[in-house]
Each structure stands twice: as structure tokens, then as C-alpha cells.
Design a protein around this nucleic acid. Structure first.
Lengths: 132, 132
DNA sequence: CCATCTGGTTGTAGGGTCGAACCATGTCGG
DNA sequence: CCGACATGGTTCGACCCTACAACCAGATGG
């Protein structure tokens, strides 16, 4: 496990493990936004499991890149709705492709007949850890 | 996968995911040293997959805590041999226990008959990622 | 209508990583 | 035997990450 973390290069905060030149926390946020289209910032807070202050900063960086924009939430005067721009969507696609490539390469080194098992095992573990 | 990282709290650099109040990078180094007894600093560099500058600083923190000491390497005048102190060994034990508890709790939530599969899958994946 | 809660922003502090510059010691080839 | 080059370490600067606290503005409820 510890070995996995190290091998995977999870220690580099300034680039995604998949080689894309964007900070990892922005990458996470981008992926989440791409999946949802638009999100209340508070929603992002608990999906990313970060503090609201941290999240606010990340959203700020994303908008600074022109990848996202903050709109006032329609149903709550205090809220902020974060939306991906067209540029942002493209960036998310690139990111997804890179991730795909990275995991593909790793999975290629696992025998065919065990690939599914490995993937489902990882999912199970994630859930288990999640619940504890 | 990304979900796993977040669920696991890998984003907090200032405490090990297992709840111990020591920075994660020190925890990694400590574990490695505990396993080996003593290590050339350069060896630590590639086991942790960090730069020598970063490693040097970590070793410095460890010695500042009184958990490790730097000795001149016997066979190479430039080298540094890092050795765990008795205190350091105790800290490593506490850390190992905490890790055990953490993973134990997670694994408890996985059905008996799949536990081995999950563990071996993770190992396989780590190796695969390692090779790419 | 006021007290309280909730979503966000900004400032501060602490941790982390890397690359570059710089030393000292090893090593190798002429 | 002595330069030229390689290797192990340290220090410094730049940048990224996170949390907590203080503070503001709407939302809620009695």
C-alpha cells in the first residue's frame, strides 16, 4: 500500500500522476466538475473532502485559468455555482485521456484474466476505507 | 482510484492517514529505516522516490526529533549512514501498530472470502504501476 | 426582529516537492 | 600522478497543498 503510493508518484503536488502539467487538486476538482457539469461550491467541498477555504482557492485557480466560472446560485443568495467553461471542458477531456493512458499502461502489465478482479478489488477497498 | 485517494485522506501532508500525528513523508522514511535498520541516505532517496534534497531535509527532521542519527558512511567518505535511535524504533513500532489498526478496520468491511483477493490485487497493481 | 446557522472569502501558519548552485570525495583515463 | 567527470549531500528559492480563525452576507426560525 505504502509502496503503491510511492510508486504512483502521489507525492508530487504540482503535476497529476498521469503526467499532465496541472496541480493534482485542480485535477480532482476538474474531473468532478466535468462529471457534474455544474456544481454548488459547497457540494464540491464534500466531494473533495476539503475545507471550504481550500475549495474556494481551488475554484479561484480554475477560474483564473479560464476553465471555470462562478455564478450566483439561483436558489440561495449566498451560494456560488461553479460551472466549467468550454476551455475547461476541453482541459477535462485531455486530463481524462491522460488518465486513461496511464492506467491502461499499468493494466496492460496485468494478465487478462485477472484484470477485472484487480479493478473490482480496488473499488471494494475504496468503499471499505470510505466507511471507516 | 481518484476516489480512493480522496477517501483515504491522502491529501493531508501533516498527518499519516492512520491518525498518527507525524508528517507522512517522515512516516514513510521511518518505516523504511525500521525495516532496514540502517540505510545509506542515497538508498533512502530511491526507495522513497524523492530528490536528494528532499530526502536530506526529511532525515534532518528525523534527527531533530531524536529518532535517527547521521553517521559517516564507513566505505565512502562523502556518504551518510542513517540509523534509527532507540526512540526512533519505538516511534516506528507505534506507527506500524496504527497502520495495522487502520487497514484492519477497512479489511473487516470486506467479505472474508474476498480479502485475500483484494490484497493480492493491490500488490499486483502496485507492481504494474511500478514498471510503467 | 434578533439570534443563529450556513456558504464563501481572505489571512496566516505549517508541510511538501523540486531544481539549481555549491562542496567534498570517488573514479577513471591519459 | 593529476586533471575531468561523476556521485552523495546540503542549502536556498519558488511553488503547491492543507487547515484553522476571523469576518461578511444571506437564510432560518422563534
Amino acid at each position: 500500500m505504502a509502496r503503491f503510493v510511492r510508486a504512483f508518484g502521489l507525492h508530487q503536488p504540482d503535476q497529476t500522476p498521469c503526467g499532465q502539467p496541472i496541480p493534482t487538486s485542480e485535477a480532482h476538482a476538474l474531473a468532478e466538475l466535468a462529471a457534474a457539469g455544474e456544481l454548488r461550491q459547497v457540494e464540491l467541498v464534500h466531494r473533495l473532502r476539503l475545507e471550504k477555504s481550500t475549495t474556494s482557492r481551488i475554484v479561484g485557480q480554475l477560474t483564473a485559468r479560464g476553465w471555470a466560472e462562478r455564478c450566483p446560485a439561483p436558489d440561495d443568495g449566498r451560494g456560488v455555482l461553479v460551472r466549467l467553461t468550454a476551455e475547461g471542458a476541453k482541459a477535462a477531456d485531455r486530463l481524462a485521456a491522460a488518465r486513461q493512458a496511464r492506467f491502461g499502461a499499468a493494466l496492460d502489465r496485468i494478465p487478462d484474466d485477472q484484470r477485472d478482479a484487480v479493478v473490482s478489488a480496488l473499488t471494494q477497498l475504496a468503499e471499505a476505507v470510505d466507511e471507516t
